[in-house]
Amino acid sequence: MPLPAARGAGRAGTTTARRGKRDRAQSTFYWMVWPAVIAFFLFHTLPVLVGIFFSLTNYAGYGAWNFVGVSNYVNLFRDDRVLQAYGFSFLFAVTATVLTNLISLAIALGLNAKILARDFWRGVYFVPYVLAILVIGYVFQFIFSNSLPKILSGIPLFADNILTNETWAWTAIVALAVWQACAFAIIIYLAGLQTIPREMYEAASLDGAKPWKQFTSITFPLISAFFTINVVLSLKSFLQVFDPIVALTNGGPGTATESVTLLIFRGGFSGGEFAYQTANAVIFFVVITVVSLVQFRVLQSREAEF
């Protein structure tokens, strides 16, 4: 039988060994995390700080510059072109978000049902998400400008190239953006639907609940968290729309489909408005952040009610 002193020494040795392992684990953790933190600071935080600095100047992207204070920010609220771009971006984003979630949820409900070759169709619907949107955009451009005017020549709206219609050109961009965005949203909704036990639907059927009642009382409340994720991500992404516009209309006709991101790109990199559009980018960042936070607050409160 070991002596008490020997037992104490053994416990002390075990404690020291555990402490050594914990210290090594913490050291490994920091060595893994710090490179990512440094890279994030260098390639994200630092450029943001530099951008905020230049937004307070009159820098054109080249040559000398001087501090102008907040005059860039004040002028943005007086610029009709900027206000039009914000109006278009929000109209586009809200419309595309609503359509994306309605279509995606309907398709996800169908795929979640007992249909033939369900896994195959899941893969088919996800294909648009992995394709280059700029390349697909040029395909859609050909369809809208050449195919549809011939196929739907009897419909006045499509008799001519809709992309040249100042009033309706934005709907073609919505069609392309929704077509691609549905792919990701469908996968999110499918993940949520698969968390619902089948027994709940069977019990509801025995109680006489119709499909619509099952959807409103069981399905939607239980996937409300997934709905929140899709809505927030969709609206944020659509507010920053760029590639579909470049591929289809390039902001035209005129400036009818010019989004905030396209305006920032044009003015900042080729229009000699680097500081001015940097200030626009700062405001746009704040707007997107506020909109996302409000969405989370409102939608998560609805989850709590469910």
Rank of each mutant, 00 (worst) to 15 (best):
R7L: 11
A9Y: 08
A9S: 10
G10N: 05
A12H: 04
A12I: 06
G20A: 13
A25N: 03
A25D: 06
Q26L: 13
Q26H: 09
S27Y: 14
S27K: 09
T28F: 11
V33A: 15
P35Y: 00
A36R: 06
I38D: 09
A39Q: 05
L42S: 07
L42F: 11
F43N: 01
T45D: 10
L46E: 06
P47G: 02
L49S: 04
V50G: 13
G51T: 05
I52R: 04
N58M: 05
Y59G: 03
A60W: 06
G61H: 04
G61Q: 02
Y62P: 14
A64E: 14
F67I: 08
V68T: 12
N72C: 03
N75Y: 07
L76A: 05
F77G: 07
R81Q: 08
R81P: 04
R81T: 10
V82I: 14
Q84I: 06
Y86M: 11
G87I: 04
L91M: 11
F92Y: 02
A93K: 00
A96R: 00
A96T: 12
L99R: 01
I103H: 14
S104V: 10
L105K: 01
I107M: 10
G110L: 12
G110H: 06
G110W: 12
A113L: 15
K114C: 11
I115W: 11
D119A: 12
F120H: 04
W121M: 03
V124M: 02
Y125T: 11
F126D: 13
L131I: 14
A132C: 15
A132H: 13
Y138N: 07
F140V: 06
Q141H: 05
Q141S: 05
F144K: 03
F144D: 01
S145T: 12
